[in-house]
Amino acid sequence: MDDPISFRDETVWLNGFYQLAIEVGSRDDGCFGALVESVSAAAGVGEWYRRRDVEPEEQVPVACAMTSFRNGERLFGKVTLPNGRGVVCGLFAIRPEEYPHWLVFYIPGGALERVGLAYEDGVSWYRSGTVDDWFAEIGAQAFARVPFLLGVIGLEVSALTSAEELGGSPEKWHGTGFLIPGQEGLRYHPARENG
């Protein structure tokens, strides 16, 4: 198979996950569910599914709601990137008892490579400026409906830091983008080459 939107093609799910990881401020299921819906709508994901080894047309879609996450399961879908190419995508929640809760929307690295968006020319870390900016827009649209504590953009960045640890200052981080709420609203800090 050579299709970046085929669920059954295992190669599109390889090479890590390029993520928009959102630290959710509230532990309330209603707030979390609203954020799930907001991120999904902003990304333009039509339907979500439980299995990535079965094509969407062969399974029943699930509701885009907090109740769809059972026992740490992931949801899988299809999305159109800013360059017009379709790829597979995923969504999962991290909701431990003692730590911050996270909602993570992601595109697998294998799918990004297939459509030529995995690496940015001239930088020394794995990233896609095109996807970074798109994730920032998804985060901004979701934030307008459901405010959150922090958004982190990059390869495998879920729970990399927290709003409390970051303290509103992403200067020490490179290769990672941030969405940081402030008095003037949500501010996007793109990934940088040097810390």
Rank of each mutant, 00 (worst) to 15 (best):
G139S: 02
G195D: 13
L160F: 12
P96S: 11
V39W: 00
N194L: 11
E47Q: 14
H189F: 15
L75S: 00
A136S: 08
D29E: 14
E55I: 09
A93M: 09
M1R: 14
G90P: 04
F135M: 14
F135C: 08
P190H: 02
L20G: 00
P147H: 06
E165Q: 15
A93R: 11
N194C: 10
G77H: 01
W102R: 01
A93K: 14
R74G: 06
E184K: 14
N194F: 15
V24D: 03
I153M: 04
V60Y: 07
I138K: 04
D2E: 13
D29A: 14
S162N: 11
H101L: 05
V115A: 05
W125E: 10
E10H: 13
V115K: 03
F69E: 00
G151K: 01
G116P: 00
L20D: 02
R145N: 10
D3Y: 12
A144I: 05
V115F: 06
G168T: 00
W134M: 06
G151T: 00
D3A: 12
N83Q: 09
F143Q: 02
G167F: 04
A140T: 10
Q59R: 08
G154I: 00
R74N: 13
L35I: 10
N194E: 12
N194D: 08
D28K: 04
N71W: 10
K78P: 01
G44Q: 11
L103A: 05
Y106D: 08
G77V: 03
G185F: 05
E137H: 09
D132E: 15
V45F: 01
S38R: 08
E97D: 08
A163S: 10
V87A: 01
V36T: 12
I94P: 05
Q59T: 05
I153T: 02
T161H: 10
E98C: 06
V24M: 15
P170S: 12
S40Q: 12
A142K: 00
E156H: 04
E57S: 13
I153K: 02
G33W: 03
E113V: 07
Y119Q: 09
F92C: 12
E137P: 03
P181A: 09
A111C: 08
D53P: 07
G44N: 10
C31Q: 14
N15D: 15
R50F: 11
D9K: 06
V131H: 03
S124A: 08
C64Y: 04
Y18V: 11
R27Y: 11
W102K: 03
R8E: 11
L186R: 09
V36A: 13
I5D: 07
V88R: 01
T176A: 05
A42W: 04
T80C: 06
G129Q: 11
G16W: 02
A144K: 12
